[in-house]
Simulated assay, not measured.
Amino acid sequence: MVPRAADDTVGLVGLLAQRGDYLESIADGVTEKRALVDAHDASRSTVDRAVRQLADAGLVDRTHGEVALTTTGRLALDAYTTFRNRVTGIDDANDVLDGVDDADDLDVRLFENATVVEAAHTPQKPMDEVADVIRTATEVRVLAPLVLPSHVEIYRDRVNENALAADVVVTQAVLDELVTNHQDTIETFVGSDDAALSFTNDDLPYGLVLASLDDRDVVLVVCGTGPVAGVLRNDTPDAVAWAADRFASARETATRLG
């Protein structure tokens, strides 16, 4: 098979954007042209044109009035759906990402099927989202570039109750504030077999909470190291894998207290 030229590939992406809904219908089992007419509330001529375009691009086969995805069509639809979901997630997160500087390691996987909790109209809502997760988690791995006193108290109390295993990495500035204002929390972490508190000299451009709940793992990215602009929440396996790698990288070079 001759590879597509660059212009042809651009054309294929455009076709997927224009006719991707037809591919989705066919993938879902709507394979007769008459059924496609009904499913898309379109004229027969419009459906014929769409199917012809998809067939010419090698995305579908036509046989006796029915249409089926080719292997190329299935793979192209999967790739386009992933691309569309990620771009949609990035666009939805645009305002909260304004609170993140120099975060070159943020991964596109984080944005696919993510939930965005903005602080613009309800400043406390993102922090409540994080607090609710901390209260219900059995284990957390955390990167903390700022001190949120209400969250510090939740960590301290749940570790004291032996209800939470916590591995927390903070910046030097956060550690200094904990020493000044939250010495009891430091003592709790240092004295617990199920908790660890470490500090790093590296900058943390965003906060990260990777939490294990009863039925799943969830990732929270806190955008903003001053005023919090919002929180991204995602529990997809790809997002969890990224968060685990990101935490492990920071933890490896951090210094543990105690």
Rank of each mutant, 00 (worst) to 15 (best):
A55E: 15
T122W: 10
L69M: 10
K33R: 15
D56C: 03
A55H: 12
K125C: 03
V222Q: 12
R84Y: 09
N234I: 04
V174N: 04
Q18N: 08
L208Q: 04
D38E: 15
D102Y: 12
N162I: 00
R86D: 08
S192A: 05
S212Q: 12
A241T: 15
D176L: 08
P227K: 12
R233G: 05
Y155V: 10
D104K: 06
D132S: 07
T88H: 11
R62F: 00
S25T: 14
T63H: 09
I154D: 01
Y80A: 11
A93H: 03
T46W: 11
G230A: 08
V168I: 14
G14W: 06
A119Q: 02
R135A: 14
T71G: 12
T136R: 15
A131T: 12
D203E: 07
E177T: 13
D56M: 06
H182D: 08
T225F: 04
A195G: 01
T46C: 03
L15W: 00
E24T: 14
G89P: 10
A166D: 01
L146H: 07
V67S: 01
D203M: 03
V221S: 04
V130D: 10
C223I: 08
L204Q: 11
N181E: 15
A68L: 11
V228H: 01
H182K: 07
A244Q: 15
I154E: 09
V130T: 13
D92V: 04
G73Y: 10
T180P: 02
D48Q: 13
D132G: 00
V159Q: 07
A120C: 05
I154G: 00
V170Q: 01
T63D: 14
E32F: 09
L257I: 10
L164R: 09
H151F: 03
V2G: 06
A42T: 03
Q124N: 12
V96R: 03
L210H: 14
E252P: 00
M127L: 15
A244R: 14
V117T: 15
T88L: 06
G89H: 08
V228P: 01
A166E: 01
Y22K: 05
D38R: 15
V10P: 03
H182R: 08
G258N: 10
A144W: 07
A229C: 08
V142G: 01
L210C: 09
D91W: 12
T200H: 05
V87D: 10
S212E: 15
L148Q: 13
G29P: 02
T136W: 00
V133N: 07
A57G: 09
D41E: 15
A39R: 09
Y155G: 06
L197Q: 05
D104C: 01
A244W: 02
A119T: 04
V228I: 15
S43Y: 08
R109N: 13
N113E: 15
G258I: 04
A76M: 13
A5W: 10
V87Q: 14
V159H: 02
P227A: 14
Q183L: 13
E118F: 03
G224R: 06
E187L: 11
L146C: 03
Y22W: 05
R62C: 08
F83P: 02
S249I: 11
D38K: 10
G58R: 11
W242A: 00
V51G: 05
A131D: 08
S192H: 01
V222Y: 05
